[in-house]
Computed example of a mutant assay.
Amino acid sequence: MTLSGMTGFARSERSGVYGSISVEARSVNGKGLDVRLRLPQGLDAVENPIRELAKQRFNRGSVSITVTLTAPEGASAASVDMAQLEAYLHATRNLVDKGGVRAASIGELLALKGVIISEETGLDEDQAAERDAEVVNAVEAALDGLKTARLEEGAALRTVLEGHLDEITDLRDQAANCAAAMPDAIKARLQVKLDELISGGVDPDRLAQEAAMMAVKADVREELDRLKAHIDSAHALLDAGSPCGRKLDFLSQEFNREANTLCSKSADTQLTNIGLALKATVDRLREQVQNVE
């Protein structure tokens, strides 16, 4: 499987005795799959097949499909509905006479709904069936193009995500090798503080007990182990491909939780700086994960 993004655009066209068909398909990020159709009047029969085509190709994203159908030259005519026009004129006459509004221009009147009547030459049953089939074929081609665009975005996203994971791995290793996180360093810091407060030294046994308690509170090895496990899981999800966006989003939350714990346990400037850098990298990772299907 290949990683896929959620944004893209594609277009396809067809033509025949029914006229010309133009299809535009575009998608943006979405928590689930939301398919929105804009079809010309008379194409209701193809709505369900088109939705199925989208469901077969995508799992997440807001997908918009617009179908435009243009009749062949000479197959349509237009006329003015005089009764409708008179109704609009009568409705506005009182306002015009009172000086509340200006009289509408001929262009404005003709633009009103129902004034212009489109009279199209009807297709026979076979021609209508051919048109509907070609509409579905055109939509299928556009959706295939949209899927290709989303896969191209996914390839670019994978490079970015792997870069962020490499940064997290490096910071995790820095934290593991940080001297301030070692039990001996914790014991030494406690010895210095106690020596400052108590003259004559400190009982070695008591020092060992206090150092052990501090070591437990400041020990970040468990967080570092979980970070390594999360890194391995993220790489496995990228290798498996889409749909994995939701799982990566959950995993990025776990990364953030471990980074926060690392900062809260830190009693050393070096380890704190590593934790803050880790948080910043995790934020960038999660931002990009939102684009993954």
Rank of each mutant, 00 (worst) to 15 (best):
L227N: 00
D203M: 11
T169M: 01
A175L: 11
L238M: 12
R172I: 00
A211M: 07
R226G: 04
L207Y: 03
L237C: 06
E196K: 10
R226M: 08
E167N: 14
A208R: 05
A218S: 12
A176N: 10
L227F: 12
D170F: 12
I231V: 15
H235C: 12
R206N: 03
P243C: 01
K193S: 11
A181K: 02
D173Q: 14
D219S: 06
S199P: 11
E167C: 02
P243N: 06
K228M: 09
A229T: 12
A236M: 08
M182A: 15
P243L: 00
I168P: 06
V192A: 07
V192T: 15
S233M: 10
L238G: 05
S252T: 10
L197K: 15
K228Q: 14
A212S: 12
K187R: 13
D249A: 00
N256C: 07
M213Q: 04
D170G: 09
A240G: 13
P183C: 03
P204A: 03
P204I: 02
H235N: 15
A212T: 04
A181M: 00
P204D: 03
R246C: 04
L224P: 10
H230A: 00
V202S: 02
R189C: 06
L224T: 09
S242A: 14
D170Q: 14
R206I: 07
D239K: 15
L248H: 07
L248A: 04
A176T: 10
